[in-house]
Design a protein around this nucleic acid. Structure first.
Length: 270
DNA sequence: CACTCTACCTGTGCGC
DNA sequence: TGCGCACAGGTAGAGT
């Protein structure tokens, strides 16, 4: 499940890989499943992308933001959210549309940018201003400072697990990294944010930064037999019943706000 | 405001 | 072997 580190890794491979997406020109757009386009009515017709060149790629929370130079016309933006099962990658244009391909941008130099998504949860926006898509989310979880983190936290009175998943609080954390961050901070997922002492806030902030930072460097998570983006090894997610790597207690799994939530009942106190 | 539930989807893995 | 079903979860939106 792509969260911040996995999305960052997609950005890096498209931007820094060989070949790179940067500088590529769009020759045509293959909309294999129209439902992939999120907004209605359309702000930008897909056909208007023909002739545009990829100028930059960045990430905000779990959103990928591609800026396009359009031959003297105003720049366009392609915004992508991978949700659960979306994948974005470059292939030879002859192999662009496979079974689960929802959108393919046929590029010059024999390449295609492919958006695959078996579950059809992922979405794409074509807009003149990416803020119209990402405007509602909070600061990026990887870079938010302690002062801003603590200030925002003070505006809520909620269980920590759902709060970390709330993209308008901070952006980029999903179910895996929420559980991993709370474990590293030694905080129980049901702890109420209003009960956090300054030291708990500091620990949570530091845990989020270090977990996400390490996962970015590792190219994403490696979850035994389920999900393999990179080499970041999880401590609690998907390890129900397995021994805590710190104290040996069996990892617990409960449901919090309809989500599977994993924690160590000894290391993470309420 | 905080929470709960549902809908959107389909591949996977389980029990029978 | 094959069928049915629970499950996975990011987000929006409606309801309590």
């Amino acid at each position: 499940m792509p969260e911040l580190p996995e999305v960052e890794s997609v950005v890096r491979s498209l931007r820094d890989g060989h070949p790179s997406l940067i500088g590529s020109r769009i020759r045509s757009v293959e909309l294999a499943w129209p439902g992939v386009l999120a907004q209605q009515p359309l702000a930008v017709d897909p056909a208007e992308l023909e002739g545009c060149c990829f100028a930059s790629i960045r990430r905000l929370g779990k959103y990928l933001i591609f800026s396009l130079n359009c031959q003297g016309k105003q720049p366009r933006y392609l915004v992508v959210h991978l949700r659960m099962t979306g994948r974005l990658f470059l292939v030879p244009d002859s192999a662009a549309v496979e079974r689960h391909t929802r959108l393919a941008l046929i590029l010059d130099h024999g390449l295609a940018l492919c958006f695959d998504d078996p579950r059809k949860f992922g979405r794409v926006w074509l807009v003149n201003d990416p803020e119209t898509v990402t405007g509602g989310i909070g600061p990026d979880a990887l870079t938010v400072g302690l002062d801003e983190f603590a200030l925002r936290l003070a505006g809520y009175r909620r269980q920590l697990k759902p709060l970390l998943l709330d993209q308008s609080f901070i952006a980029g954390i999903g179910n895996i990294y929420a559980d991993e961050s709370l474990y590293r901070a030694g905080l129980h997922p049901l702890t109420n944010s209003a009960d956090l002492l300054p030291d708990g806030m500091r620990r949570l902030h530091a845990a989020i930064r270090s977990v996400l930072g390490e996962a970015v460097e590792a190219g994403g998570a490696n979850i035994d037999g389920v999900f393999k983006a990179g080499s970041f090894v999880v401590n609690v997610y998907g390890r129900e019943g397995a021994p805590c790597r710190i104290c040996g207690t069996a990892i617990s799994k409960i449901r919090v706000g309809q989500r599977g939530t994993h924690f160590c009942g000894y290391c993470q106190t309420l």
